[in-house]
């Protein structure tokens, strides 16, 4: 069970949250110039690292705010929590 520190509500159990997947993925554009490869990459390919991962979480059963967190996918330790629109302290591994 993860204990997630919502930046707005404080520590809450994981059942209140929903994970929205990898953070900082930009939609490629403009639409007419995007190759099939780039579009496929955007839709389906993720870093999926064994180690630290930056991901978006949604406090679905709480304040209903989105935020970012960095979590280790092996130990599940939450390393960092930061607001949407920011990139946190480290560059992505992928």
């Amino acid at each position: 069970m993860l204990l997630i520190e919502c930046p707005y509500c404080g520590p809450r159990p994981e059942i209140e949250f929903r994970c929205g997947g990898e953070s900082h993925i930009e939609r490629p554009g403009p639409q007419g110039e995007v190759t099939d490869e780039a579009w496929s990459d955007y839709l389906f390919y993720r870093g999926n690292p064994k180690g630290e991962h930056r991901e978006r979480w949604f406090h679905a059963a709480g304040c209903r705010q989105w935020f970012n967190l960095k979590r280790d996918t092996v130990t599940h330790r939450i390393v960092e929590i930061y607001p949407m629109g920011e990139t946190g302290s480290a560059e992505p591994t992928w």
């Binding site: 069970m1 993860l2 159990p13 994981e14 059942i15 929903r18 994970c19 999926n48 690292p49 064994k50 991962h53 991901e55 979590r71 996918t73 092996v74 130990t75 599940h76």
Partner: peptide, 13 residues
Amino acid sequence: DLYLSYAQRGSLP
């Protein structure tokens, strides 16, 4: 458990 994991254990919920 719908978040990435390489830990071979599941969550209590």
